[in-house]
Design a protein around this nucleic acid. Structure first.
Lengths: 233, 233
DNA sequence: TTATTAAGTGTATTATTTACACTAAGAATG
DNA sequence: CATTCTTAGTGTAAATAATACACTTAATAA
């Protein structure tokens, strides 16, 4: 039975939703988390995880709620991407969507299909399916943003484990920026910045020389930025 | 008489508005266009120009409509800034605001007070009054954005006349970035980029050596970017 | 024991950024 | 008409940052 209609306004109002572009990385190509829709419109089509904003929550709270629903991860990096307001972006009625992009450590999360979705799956950026609504457009903006951002803010670490090798970090940058980077120059530069803490620990069970683990020292980074340092790769 | 209430929804919906952070420049400090509100809430307080989004227009169309109302300028640089969705940002009811920032050539526009406003006025960034709603927060985000953006996108030209001297351009960068720049290095760099067209014309009626006029060659800039060039100051 | 694979390291060359001071031109002033 | 005032316009050397490049080492697998 349909709920009673009870909210009345003088002027017509669009509905408000958020959509989340969730990036993950596990060594190869950069990946995107998509869901298969269980209901119309775009039933059985792939789409970004999203949902309507409750009246007592901010759009960011809504996005975080959706992220927890889909991945189980509570504290991930999230940033507002852009607000999409084309009048015809949803076939049902006018819906404004405030899109967010999120960076997830693929080892921390567990995929959960959740409400109204058949399944959730990771897709490599080069192998994305056709998406519902204007979600391809949203993804395009998100990819542009992450590419632009990664070079002058140390957000890449959000996609890795707490401990990572410099080779993993380099591979991440190469995946996001779609370039190849000289190993020695990369190490010189990133270590020279002074916010990577070298750990005693090494990789285990690898059929080659084990790489040393490093971690991102947030405190050191903060101090550096306060002294006028600004990250640039 | 109040209009009939006639739009009914199953769930409560926030109202949707846009606010515009309009930057202008005339040689000294960077300036912001503010309006004095004629009505409650925040009657007689200074605020950003803004208004509700019509059901058949996008938020950007709404922002442009407001800009034309306030300044008479139809084609100005405008870019979405951020969407502010705190649940208590308006004392009347929940209103989501998609903020835009705009760059205006102060010589092209005329200030128009317009609907619901007592007057419109330019304020230097260092002399801003207290603002209504969460508008101080919006302005802060906008200043951050313009500072960050101006160094890697040639948007500064939007604030100047079509013809400008290199000294004017330098003064603009110094005003936005709040730094002083070496004249020779600035000229070398900006001219070396190859998208400034030197004109025959010079300044008139100045009690000193007249500066040569230049213009921003959009076509040349576009060609350069397509060849992989990317602007950075 | 050997093969395979990626980790880890230094230097020379080139390109970019920075610091710096005088002459030239135009109007205003007396 | 000469002088003053003000900002336009210009080049070079030094310092810093970016780039290109190849071999040894360590760990497991075969």
């Amino acid at each position: 039975m349909k709920q009673q209609l009870k909210y009345v306004y003088e002027y017509e109002r669009p509905a408000l939703a958020t959509d989340c572009v969730i990036f993950g990385f596990d060594g190869g190509e950069l990946k995107l988390l998509l869901i298969e829709r269980e209901k119309e419109p775009f039933k059985n089509k792939w789409a970004l995880p999203g949902g309507f904003v409750f009246i007592e929550e901010t759009t960011e709270e809504c996005a975080r709620r959706i992220l927890v629903e889909k991945t189980g991860v509570k504290h991930m990096f999230i940033e507002q991407l852009y607000t999409f307001s084309d009048t015809d972006r949803d076939p049902r009625e006018r819906i404004i969507s405030v899109a967010y992009f999120a960076l997830v450590n693929k080892h921390q999360y567990e995929l959960i299909a959740g409400r109204d979705t058949i399944k959730a799956e990771w897709f490599e950026l080069s192998k994305l399916p056709k998406l519902a609504f204007d979600h391809s457009k949203i993804v395009k903006v998100a990819i542009q943003r992450i590419k632009g951002k990664v070079s002058y803010q140390p957000i890449g670490f959000e996609l890795l484990n707490e401990k990572f090798t410099l080779s993993q970090l380099q591979a991440l940058y190469e995946a996001i920026l779609e370039v190849s980077i000289d190993k020695r120059n990369f190490r010189k530069k990133i270590l020279g910045m002074g916010f990577l803490k070298g750990l005693e620990e090494k990789e285990q069970n690898v059929a080659r020389k084990a790489g040393q683990y490093y971690s991102f020292d947030k405190k050191a980074y903060k101090e550096l930025t306060q002294k006028g340092f600004h990250f640039e790769l």
